[in-house]
Design a protein around this nucleic acid. Structure first.
Lengths: 219, 219
DNA sequence: CCGATACGAGACTGTTCCGTATCGATAGTT
DNA sequence: AACTATCGATACGGAACAGTCTCGTATCGG
């Protein structure tokens, strides 16, 4: 039995930075991994996932679309799930911190951003598909929520809390219910293609929620 | 080449009623199809779909779980999609027409029913999976909406409109927004496992929406 | 130039699954 | 009894796909 000739084994996998010069220590021999190939793989993976879901991401297609060989993929990630995990983790949510004048304006702006995201087929389908496949692939779901969903909700919570402090919103506002109602309204819309809404969807939702349904004056 | 000996070809498929005696005219020779087998197939299909989605419905498993042969399935439906279509079409939505005292009570009752449905893993997963696979299998989605979703929304619209007539709700209430906010809140909840809610979720959502967020008295 | 690693391409194996075909047995009509 | 369609079971062809492996080539450090 050989002592296995321990390779340095700094495991560049899934985190390789061929260039980027981490100083001195770990420059590995041989040809560096292509940063460009890696990016193309992630791109293609996200595309295919948005089109077809987990099952639809077939590694052969990812390789073809990214213009790489299958080995180049499996050299970085041990299997399909890890690949998806990395791809979802790479998602950035460029949600602009709203610093508007009034809470109403901030909320409208946020709902508009969410609607815009929903109008992007890639993003919308990623979300819908994860909703369905979340139980089957809980690690994917967790990664997505942590990377995309929760940051977004946090911003909304912050806006609402600020509104309560400034007195613009009722002091006994149910923050969680408000967040659910706003995000949920965006989710539920169009699911049964409403032709009722034009461009003022965000305004109507926010105003509807701000005013409330009740005819009795609340205070 | 034989003339193919044209069979009568009245095509009882997908609509067979072996017993049930459609009067006189069309009693076909041979062993009648088993109504029981048909029901078992539909059941098994819905079960498997709820567990795994479209791809998860593998006909061999449906047959095994229903205790029938594959041929018994393909004799009735020409392919998997038609089978799913029939299965989803068989769904009944036993949503009780609410005739409560106040609109608030009716809405709370409806939200509670929706939450209860969400607590039924079969129903919840059917919905989530369809949401994701809707683009891939639009006919399935359409069938489901027509059978389950729209009837439900209609009831809610009716309740809200009644509230407007009785004066309990603001006359300028945005009915569609209200429906979206209520159904959406239920949808969005738990999707990022909120531990914030106990048993009073329905009440909080309805009251939050009725009162509104705004501190200004609306009228 | 040499050794080491990465590259794209794709052959290959093993699995899963759809849809068809065939089996002897069964349950109806005539 | 003769006839016929359905029954459950299962073998089969074909396609799709994950993951491994092997080409010959390219790119790095020394």
């Amino acid at each position: 039995m050989q002592p296995v000739t321990v390779v340095p084994e700094s495991d560049p996998g899934t985190e390789t930075r061929s260039t980027g010069g981490s100083p001195g220590s770990g420059r590995r021999p041989g040809r560096p991994r292509s940063e460009q190939a890696e990016q193309a793989i992630i791109e293609a993976t996200l595309d295919l996932f948005a089109e077809q879901g987990f099952e639809g991401v077939c590694v052969e297609l990812v390789a073809a679309r990214a213009g790489v060989g299958k080995a180049t993929i499996y050299r970085r990630w041990p299997n399909k799930e890890e690949l998806l995990l990395a791809a979802l983790g790479s998602l950035k949510s460029p949600l602009p911190e709203p610093e508007g004048v009034s809470v109403r304006d901030d909320l409208i702006a946020m709902v508009e951003v969410m609607c815009a995201d929903k109008a992007d087929p890639r993003k919308a389908r990623r979300y819908a598909l994860l909703l369905g496949e979340g139980e089957k692939y809980p690690r994917l779901m967790a990664r997505y929520k942590e990377t995309v969903v929760e940051p977004r909700r946090d911003v909304m919570r912050t806006v609402i809390r600020r509104g309560i402090e400034t007195g613009e919103l009722r002091p006994d506002t149910d923050v969680e219910v408000a967040v659910l109602a706003l995000t949920g309204a965006v989710m539920a819309q169009e699911k049964s293609v409403d032709r009722t809404f034009d461009g003022d969807f965000a305004t109507r939702v926010v105003d509807g929620l701000l005013l409330g349904l009740s005819a009795r004056a609340p205070r």
